[in-house]
Amino acid sequence: MKNKGWRLFPAIAGILVGVVAAEIITSGAITAALPMIVNFITLYLQADAIKSVARTWFKPLAIIQR
């Protein structure tokens, strides 16, 4: 578990550097777009969760139909 934490740290640092660079390059315009970007990410994660639950629920039906 500790090994994965050290792999995650550079990714988080890279994301932060990317966001700061985007803020500097766009003179802060990216801040206005962040809520929309977060909404799209949230929508994708919700759809993925629904798909996962549906697979879990309908997996027994596939066994019964065989």
Rank of each mutant, 00 (worst) to 15 (best):
M1N: 11
M1W: 07
K2M: 09
K2R: 07
N3M: 12
K4V: 07
G5L: 09
W6S: 00
R7H: 08
L8S: 09
F9H: 01
A11W: 05
A13Y: 04
A13I: 10
G14K: 04
G14V: 06
I15T: 07
L16H: 05
G18H: 01
V20L: 15
V20W: 09
A21I: 07
A21G: 02
E23M: 08
I25N: 02
S27E: 06
S27R: 12
G28C: 04
G28I: 01
A29K: 11
A29F: 08
A29G: 04
A32V: 05
A32R: 13
A33M: 06
A33I: 00
M36R: 10
M36E: 13
V38G: 10
V38I: 14
V38K: 09
N39G: 15
N39D: 15
T42E: 11
L43C: 10
L43S: 14
L43A: 15
Y44G: 10
Q46N: 11
A47I: 15
A47E: 13
D48F: 11
A49S: 12
I50W: 08
K51Q: 14
V53P: 00
R55K: 15
R55F: 09
T56L: 05
T56E: 01
W57D: 02
F58V: 10
F58M: 10
K59L: 00
K59A: 05
K59T: 05
P60L: 08
P60T: 02
L61S: 05
L61Q: 00
L61A: 04
R66I: 02
